[in-house]
Amino acid sequence: MPGPAAPLRVATFLRPAAILRVAAAGLLAAFLLRPQSFAPLFAPLTQYGAAPIYDQGNLLTLALAHVVTVCCAAAASAIIAIGLGILVTRPGGREFLPLSRTLVNIGQTFPPVAVLALAVPLVGFGELPTLIALFVYGLLPIFENTVVALQTCPPAVLEAASGMGMSARQRLLAVELPLAMPLILEGIRLSLVINVGTATLGSTVAAKGLGEVIIAGLLSNNTAFILQGGLLTGLMAVLLYDALAVLERRVCANVRIE
């Protein structure tokens, strides 16, 4: 599809939602790069002259570590969940669908905190238990979306693909996956966004991330820390969600199912 004409793009930028997004991105960048300039805003929330801005680590480093953890976990979830989704929608793997669904559901039902608690004795403190918890937690949306997307490919299109002589593999790669891509990406997006919030729990087991700020605030009864930790995490989740939505539209511009 040819992209919209230049004047249209300008108009898109002027939409209120777009203005809000740009403002949110600016706010996040400003806070991470020059946190001290926000000190006057947070000072009223502190008591006894405590620091209004988190000072036990670099916010930018923590935010980056946070994003890296979430993205690594989501990548692992995506590989496993998509692979499993493909497997259980093939003729040979159909019988594994109920089993896979149950396993993935357990991953979602089991609270991440509990996963952390179980993982720490096995793998020790640090990033790894957090990665495991996020990986398990993020499987469900990707798996379910992959399965639904592959199961709802238009039958006529699949029949035509086979009828023209595509092998099962060619059909999967050239037809089924491209048609399923919007829903699969949607699942990855959901999983990523949920995990941006969930990853704050990782700081309880010494993973680097913005959870550190919140936990420091809770320990020292510093509302300013709690608030800025929460705000930063929230802003990141919203912006990540938007960024992925844009990517999704780009990638799937041509996938249209009547």
Binding site: P154, A156, A160, A161, S162, G163, G165, N254, I257
Partner: peptide, 18 residues
């Protein structure tokens, strides 16, 4: 391989939407 030598057209055309 057989099917690549035989044309096949169906009612709902089955064109690839992407």
């Amino acid at each position: 391989l057989l099917r690549r030598r035989i044309g096949y057209a169906i009612q709902s055309h089955g064109l690839f939407p992407h």
